[in-house]
Computed example of a mutant assay.
Amino acid sequence: MKKTKFLAAGLIAAMIVPVAAQAQTREIERDRREVREERREYREALRHGDRHDIREERREYNDARRDLRDSRNDWRRDKRYQNYRAPFAYQSFRIGATLRPNYYAPAYRPAWDSRWGVPRAGRNLTYVRHYNDLLLVNMRSGKVIRVYRNHFRWR
């Protein structure tokens, strides 16, 4: 009985974690949209508004930018993405290098995320985190296709 409750609690927690990450992503997207709208309104006030309108729109634009910055910082402080260290020493990889399979084991393959600013991995390709670097690797041959150096340096 205890085992099934523990298992059910684990499954529920596993389902909630991606939802929280999606909520943060949606918040960042909403803040980006708001910054664009406020910038547009500020520019319109510069063209056609009086001094009071310009001051008010500038204040709203700065508030929207601050909200976006805070949302991004909240996402970066998320504990699930911190304290990552591989069980082997750092090595600087170059394009064309061949990795051993233990370097691109499932534990080091983070799921693609639009917040990273990198394109989705294609067929038979995967992203591999190696300390602060992000590598795009061909899973069949182990060849490094692309290297994003210090991609996680804000950690």
Rank of each mutant, 00 (worst) to 15 (best):
Y131H: 13
R47E: 00
S92V: 09
W112R: 07
R115S: 11
L68H: 04
A121I: 10
R77G: 10
Y103A: 12
A45N: 00
A111K: 12
A107H: 10
Y127Q: 09
V137H: 06
R59A: 15
H52Y: 05
R129P: 02
M139N: 12
G96K: 13
D53K: 04
R59Y: 12
D63E: 14
R55N: 03
A64N: 05
R65E: 15
D74N: 12
D67W: 04
R100C: 04
Y131L: 03
R55I: 00
N124T: 14
R77L: 12
N138H: 13
D63I: 10
R94W: 03
A64P: 06
D67Y: 05
G49D: 00
G117R: 06
Y108G: 06
F93A: 08
E60A: 13
P110W: 03
D67L: 10
R69F: 07
F88L: 04
Y61A: 04
A105P: 09
R65N: 11
P101G: 10
A105E: 15
Y61W: 14
W112I: 08
S114D: 12
R115C: 02
G117P: 08
R69P: 02
R77E: 10
G96W: 12
A97E: 14
L46K: 12
R66C: 02
S71C: 09
W75P: 00
D78C: 01
A111I: 09
G49S: 01
S114F: 04
Y81K: 01
D50E: 03
R51A: 11
L99D: 08
H52A: 11
R58G: 09
D53V: 01
E60N: 10
R47S: 00
R80A: 06
S71W: 05
V118Q: 07
L46N: 05
R47W: 00
R65L: 12
R80E: 05
Y81E: 01
G117W: 05
R140L: 13
G49C: 01
D67H: 13
D133V: 03
E56V: 00
V118D: 07
P87F: 01
G49P: 00
L136H: 09
V128W: 04
L135S: 05
S114Q: 10
